[in-house]
Design a protein around this nucleic acid. Structure first.
Lengths: 333, 333
DNA sequence: CTGTTAGCGCTTTCAA
DNA sequence: TTGAAAGCGCTAACAG
């Protein structure tokens, strides 16, 4: 137990507990007393009581984190980033999982608030009106990750830019006859932003090209099954909305004896380890989720210090060059 | 702010704050007052102050979790399990990561202790003498996950049993000429336990068999490279120490045109999603890390309640039947 | 069933 | 530079 209290060490040192408190918090203490106190603390192993301290001082050095689920690589990486910054600033993470349940997500926010955290980072499923209400009601800062909404503080991966960068890479390798193997627009970031960025690059910079869209879902299997529809367009390259989709397509192409990248180039988005472990390694855009977490945390810490400015750094998007894209020659660049 | 206190709502209701406290904690309150209080609380949105409450009651309903790193699937699944149980019992997780640094791991334990958690779960890298010392010194329960050590409470996956179960499955499919594609014995659980369990089953139950050992490391690439050494033994089946190793081997076999499982059967350990996504799906033993987390948490909660008994349930090992093993017929069963 | 009282361990005026 | 004293918000005897 932290049985031994500030009073105990005050007694030992024959000083008042105020002096000990001052010592602990860097107030005026005579050199002499300082040393006595220091010795007593070391000797007894005294640790000041967290709760008593917080009850007085009001700030908890706790930051709340709500996540949709834990066993996900992207969430893990984000948490890593959050952890990095918290550590540097002596904040501790109070974590709760919503298990992808929107109502639960709201509950987690309240619960965390109720436990006295100084600020909350929410890796959100969706930002609803209730979110905005709670955002405005709670008098501690909240930052949302994963969804955009102008009514709240949020930080997001720039999926549009990712699509744009990838398109640029396709273009540099002289691909102009492309299939976009994507998902439903219901998923905003993957379904819309990524695609839009890709299309926009071509629209803005390339003449005479064709991009055909083939719809699939997030599963490996469906992507595999859509293989035929893809090659019906006879593209030189296929951009897949995720690495997983790319994997499914590759399996189909392999089975058909269509060589990657000799006969057809492919690429994805995600940048997980698997993507580089297979043969050929997938060219992909890696999202720096760790950085995402770090930035979110820096921002929330800023907000806690009432330092209003939001540090609006772009999340780094890294193009990972695999072996799945072939430069087919041509006229540009 | 949680500005409004128990006193405020006492004032509103014209009762003493003790009554409010009683209401909050399920003590005697007249029906009449109950309703007044309830109304006042709802109306004001009163939330009792976490720190004040803890200062009095001494237990924090906080459980500390130290993990080696966050962005790992196994850690994620374990956290999921921990989270499940904490939630049910209204405990909140205070999480810190050691980043695979042994010294840091110890620091995390102290830090968590210092923050008033009621118990700590440590997903440990290694249990050293210092761990045992701190285990004995701290007067709150600690449970270690991931390493065995008789001086402390620990919970582990039973790798030996996993090997044993897998061997049984191999035997049922009539394989008696086997290669064990494993890793160095320096890794205790994967390098020794898994292998030993596998060998022991055959030793104890089978006559006339051969198991040849081929050493590789954890990487996909090395496993791929060791493919030739494996087939030199001309086995009917290969058991790989991890799914990842199995993947590497499969790539080699595919390239050589050796059909799986027609020509050669393969299997692994791990049970990640990838293993079932590929073709043929890998037969593997899935470790239930979520359950591991749940049991650890149940136990620590028990220990917190001074209910000394350690609930020593076996962690469930699930044999996942893929398509990578063929029954080659024969005499047994 | 209720109110009074006394702290939990700490910080923070305020006077000395 | 120090100590006394008040109080953070809550719970838990205790006496009524």
């Amino acid at each position: 137990m932290g049985k031994i209290t500030i009073q105990d060490i005050a007694d030992i040192c024959q000083v008042s507990k105020s002096s000990v408190s001052r010592y602990l918090n860097g107030g005026y203490v005579s050199k002499e007393n300082k040393e006595k106190i220091k010795a007593a603390i070391e000797q007894t192993g005294f640790k000041s009581n967290f709760f008593a301290k917080r009850l007085k001082t009001k700030n908890s050095s706790l930051i709340g984190v709500v996540i949709p689920r834990i066993d996900s690589i992207t969430v893990g990486k984000t948490l890593n980033g959050i952890n990095n910054i918290c550590e540097k600033n002596n904040y501790t993470i109070l974590m709760q999982s919503s298990n992808l349940d929107l109502k639960k997500e709201l509950e987690c926010i309240s619960s965390l608030y109720n436990q006295g955290v100084d600020g909350i980072i929410v890796y959100t499923i969706n930002i609803t009106d209730e979110h905005i209400k709670i955002y405005n009601d709670l008098k501690i800062p909240i930052i949302f990750i994963g969804q955009k909404n102008k009514n709240v503080n949020y930080i997001c991966i720039d999926d549009y830019k990712a699509g744009y960068i990838m398109a640029e890479h396709f273009y540099k390798n002289n691909h102009k006859n492309i299939v976009f193997l994507g998902v439903d627009e219901e998923d905003k970031s993957v379904g819309i932003e990524r695609k839009q960025g890709f299309y926009d690059f071509y629209k803005q910079n390339v003449k005479n090209y064709s991009i055909n869209f083939v719809k699939t879902d997030f599963s490996f299997k469906k992507a595999y099954n859509m293989g035929k529809n893809v090659i019906d367009f006879n593209p030189t390259a296929v951009i897949c909305a995720t690495d997983n989709i790319c994997l499914g397509l590759m399996l189909y192409l392999n089975e058909k004896g269509i060589k990657i990248p000799d006969k057809i180039s492919v690429a994805g988005f995600g940048g997980y380890e698997v993507s580089s472990a297979i043969k050929p390694a997938i060219t992909t855009i890696q999202f720096d989720y760790e950085l995402l977490g770090e930035i979110a945390t820096k921002n929330i810490l800023n907000l806690i210090k009432c330092n209003e400015q939001q540090e609006n750094i772009d999340i780094n998007l890294k193009l990972i060059l695999g072996e799945s894209i072939k430069n087919i020659g041509g006229t540009n660049e």
